[in-house]
């Protein structure tokens, strides 16, 4: 589904990604972790072309992201993305947040889009809030709406960039629960997160990044059992004692 091959990226002289390669198969859940500044966000943004990269190839569902001929908006409309700071559109009601891209990008009718949006809103447990505005919801609620907004586009896979790290602790689980459910339904997911409980529950593989490189790309059990690199071991020790 997602294939990343020998991807490197730099800002001027600063190397953000160095020779990154990995593969996400249909239905797989991949968790990406690593210290701050290691390039996790950059890597995941390369997958839907939000960040350009200088060398290597990334393809999603067989379509090359870096190819200038690729219709990026069309590709992105099929790849869901959830951000650390939710990024709902503050001037639109929750319903409009859920429907606008369906209408403007996919060309769905307003009624069909609203129907779909409200169903997903119900699924994330927020049906009663359809007419509110993002600023009137808590962080956890906003993030659940953001997930519903992405799902409304019927994505073939979902990208998550630290979806719970801007949340108060008591709201983290309500978002993780939605993500776990998605994973169980077979959604292909690439999640940057430090929620190791989530990783243990649903991840197929864990990528560990450091200084722009993918240092580990292990299946879950061997990563938690016995990471091969010293850096991953230290990182795990740090976050697991919290």
């Amino acid at each position: 589904m997602i294939s990343i091959q020998n991807v490197s990226k730099h800002y001027g002289a600063f190397q953000v990604l160095t020779d990154c390669s990995t593969e996400v198969k249909k239905g797989e859940v991949i968790v990406v972790c690593g210290p701050s500044g290691s390039g996790k966000s950059t890597l995941i943004k390369c997958v839907n072309g939000l960040e350009p990269f200088q060398s290597g190839t990334i393809s999603v569902d067989g379509i090359s992201v870096g190819d200038p001929k690729t219709d990026l908006p069309r590709l992105r409309s099929r790849v869901g993305m959830v951000f650390q700071h939710f990024e709902l559109f503050p001037h639109m009601s929750i319903t409009d947040n859920l429907t606008i891209a369906q209408i403007k990008v996919l060309g769905r009718g307003r009624d069909a889009a609203t129907d779909k949006g409200l169903k997903l809103l119900d699924r994330v447990g927020l049906k009663a809030h359809a007419d509110k505005f993002p600023g009137q919801l808590s962080g956890g609620q906003q993030q659940r709406v953001a997930i519903a907004r992405a799902l409304a586009m019927d994505p073939i896979c979902m990208l998550f960039d630290e979806p719970t790290s801007a949340l108060d602790p008591e709201m983290i689980n309500e978002v993780l629960d939605v993500m776990v459910e998605l994973a169980h339904e077979g959604m292909t997911m690439m999640c940057v997160t430090h929620e190791m409980g989530f990783a243990k529950k649903v991840a197929n593989r864990i990528l560990f990044m450091d200084k722009g490189q993918i240092v580990e790309d292990d299946d879950k059990d061997s990563f938690f059992g016995n990471p091969r690199s010293e850096r991953a071991r230290q990182f795990l020790a740090k976050i697991l004692t919290h």
Partner: peptide, 15 residues
């Protein structure tokens, strides 16, 4: 505006 707003619009498939 927060920089993520533009990214969020593009990520939904908006031109």
């Amino acid at each position: 505006l927060p920089r993520g707003q533009k990214a969020a619009g593009l990520a939904l498939g908006f031109t």
